[in-house]
Design a protein around this nucleic acid. Sequence first.
DNA 1: TAGATTGTTAATCGATTAACAATC
DNA 2: TAGATTGTTAATCGATTAACAATC
Lengths: 277, 277
Amino acid sequence: MRRTPVGRQTRARGIPEATVARLPLYLRALTALSERSVPTVSSEELAAAAGVNSAKLRKDFSYLGSYGTRGVGYDVEYLVYQISRELGLTQDWPVVIVGIGNLGHALANYGGFASRGFRVAALLDADPTVVGSSAAGLPVRHMDELESIVESQQVSIGVITTPPGAAQQVCDRLVEAGVTSILNFAPTVLTVPDGVDVRKVDLSIELQILAFHEQRKAGEEPEAEEEPAPSRAPGPVRAAAAKLRRAAGGAKETKDAGKDAKAEPRGESERSAVMPA
Amino acid sequence: MRRTPVGRQTRARGIPEATVARLPLYLRALTALSERSVPTVSSEELAAAAGVNSAKLRKDFSYLGSYGTRGVGYDVEYLVYQISRELGLTQDWPVVIVGIGNLGHALANYGGFASRGFRVAALLDADPTVVGSSAAGLPVRHMDELESIVESQQVSIGVITTPPGAAQQVCDRLVEAGVTSILNFAPTVLTVPDGVDVRKVDLSIELQILAFHEQRKAGEEPEAEEEPAPSRAPGPVRAAAAKLRRAAGGAKETKDAGKDAKAEPRGESERSAVMPA
DNA sequence: TAGATTGTTAATCGATTAACAATC
DNA sequence: TAGATTGTTAATCGATTAACAATC
């Protein structure tokens, strides 16, 4: 259905985004099995290790091709290779990291990059007091060198770990220099031209989502006390009301403890809240 | 439809997970407007600032209640308050960070936490050479103190930034001590009992997803050269084949450049690849 | 062969989007 | 009033899941 008319050994294209986002999970689980020299694995076992359900895993794999053996399972090594290839991890990806603060340092040292074909081509910073220092055995170089590094090392992926104020400007320079994929850790929405991919990691978003659910675990009162009625008055009056409420502040909000006030295992969200059985 | 039978001013519960995940984006955009003293904003403007489309934003807000004014837009301050309240950010959330390496340091210093009601109650580490040092003005304390800190400070959220090998064990102790929400930065699938939420941030997954799309930008050949036919032989033979191919290694894979080989703007994925127009 | 497990179908569920009536 | 913009509907799209025929 999603599959393109299948020729002889042409595999389907148009792998769903949700599937792509899970391939790294499978790959990690498979790599662990491989290191333990486990030769084959069933969809049930692998799904458990990756924290998803087995029907989803089989469906996901079906987009890649028929790499399993009925009655037996999947060959671990073969699948590691196929998924790696599908993700593009069988080739070398030079990346630059821009903004070498705490987070830039952490990323430069992060083992998960190198082991997956990502090679830190350079660490860059605009601050002269940081330039010249070293992180993860690499020298921190000045932003001025960005263009020449991107060009000479054929860098197509940039990682932004600058303060939010500098992110768009850095992004523009990366794109101008030829980078076509950007991983943004700065809490800013980046604007990029067509053909450039941006993905974002916001360290506080996940925490906020946890707070949302945590809040619901707390308020179990069946008959909850009501919020003051939302004012129907126009803007300014509302704003004033908001300030008043905010001033009232810290008071724990119980309000309507609804049907899902109970801890709700969210299953596999896109963002992969993993709750294996 | 999703709405519970509506009483007088009871707002809907059961906000979709996808909506919850976007509330922090809206909140950030609104906070920026608030700092510029912008009094009201339309769904169109706010959507652009948050990097989503306006229909989605209005739909999202409709789950929270009717906080806009037709013909006018939304009162910025009022909406900041409502979203903060919905996310549970109007209360104080003490968190512990376990594992004070580079990433733990980065998180301890991360401004986005404090500004949203998250307070670092303690930094913990098992390594005696790290214990006693300080990060972000806080002393690093020994793991032994975990239980007493969680109890005395009523900590319900724990952040794990340990090496992968230690993560499950740390998780178990956190849960045992009373923590019911866990943000996991270690690349491991954590097992937790019902009622405990786990969210995961994997720094390399996003990079792998970028690589997947980057790979497709490169191979534009209309008639692509085929992959060697997937072997239909059983396990061991495949494994051998895989090893052979891997040895052949670095060679750039062009293979089937399918219909979506072109750079595909992914729109708003769950993981929020933001590509504003 | 009998047992195991894949790959696929089809039903269901949830999320996105355009369009527009309601209404400020 | 006329213009603007929300809140909601309904259609569409995409993702999940259980179930099972195919087949090792």
